[in-house]
Computed example of a mutant assay.
Amino acid sequence: MKVLITGGEGQLGRAIYEKMKNTSDVIKLSKEKLDITKQQTVYDVFQDVKPDYVFHTAAYTAVDQCEESKTKAFQVNSIGALNVANASKSVGSIMIYISSDYVFDGTKSTPYEVTDSPNPKSVYGLSKWLGEELVLNTIPESYVVRTSWLYGHGGKNFVNTVLKFATSQKEVKVVSDQIGSPTYVNDLVDVLLQLITKPYGIYQIRNDGQCSWYDFAKAIYEKVGTDSNLVQPITTKEYGAVAPRPQFSILNLNKLEASNIKIPRRWDIALRSYLTKEGFHDCWSKSKTNYEVL
């Protein structure tokens, strides 16, 4: 099986590569090696590689920057996805497009179903939703996978950011009124590899359970042995982010269960596994220093 990974140097792309490299012919391409916004470049690469499967993980994920760089957001997340879909279709590749919980507006109080109508509040969310539509309309024999609050090894993410503050024993303010589900990339990859044997369409994958960003940060502090009281709650309004975020973005996992795929483990158990692999132990003293805001 020949596999192509776009965004191959991102945290998800690397995790897919590590999982598949010993059993498949896997090619991971960074944005420097494959600029998905260039249609002819993408087409040429696909004609050369002719992959059986394409994991399209490349994306512009800086949510606040997307509001200020709208053209780039749509070029990468929408047109880029279309270019990959067209190239996949031209060589008969099966495409797996990674989308986001941000396609929803966050106004529900129950988990979002696969069939719920997206209503993104941000440019980022809108660009990912448009990417979904372009992929599915271009190549119905594909998978759209929505996930949430993703973190992995070696990437720039919430967990690694909070760890820097925790290991320095700093106080930090974290938003407490946005509810979602953290997703460990290794667990996401395990499900993705099961998914490609199932019927095409839209799926949602996350770790089990839910929490706020504040709860998530406190758990990180606790699991590395730092006083979790150093984490202080702040409202979304007080934080003042440029881009609006969904206040509730839990993704319903019924379709996974209906497909006989086991729901990934609880987010807090996955977090402990991640931290263990990163070499963290309960070894930091509990003290307060200066104040930081996330």
Rank of each mutant, 00 (worst) to 15 (best):
V3G: 02
G13M: 00
M20A: 13
K21P: 04
T23V: 13
S24D: 14
D25N: 15
D25L: 11
E32C: 09
E32R: 15
K33A: 13
D44G: 04
F46M: 13
V54I: 13
H56Q: 10
H56F: 11
V63Q: 04
D64L: 05
C66F: 03
T71N: 10
K72G: 02
Q75H: 11
Q75V: 03
L82E: 05
V84F: 05
A85N: 04
I94M: 10
I98A: 07
S100N: 07
D101T: 06
F104P: 11
Y112G: 06
T115H: 07
T115F: 08
V123H: 00
S127Q: 03
K128Y: 00
G131L: 01
G131I: 00
T138F: 02
I139E: 00
S142V: 01
S142E: 00
S142L: 00
Y143F: 12
V145Y: 00
R146N: 09
L150V: 14
V159L: 06
V159A: 09
T161M: 12
E171S: 12
I179S: 04
T183Q: 06
V185Y: 07
V191P: 04
L195P: 10
I196V: 15
T197H: 14
R206F: 01
N207V: 01
C211Y: 00
K223S: 04
V224L: 10
G225E: 09
N229K: 14
Q232W: 05
T236P: 02
Y239F: 15
A241M: 13
A243G: 09
F248A: 10
L256W: 07
R272M: 11
S273D: 15
Y274K: 05
F280S: 03
F280Q: 07
W284M: 13
S285L: 14
E292S: 14
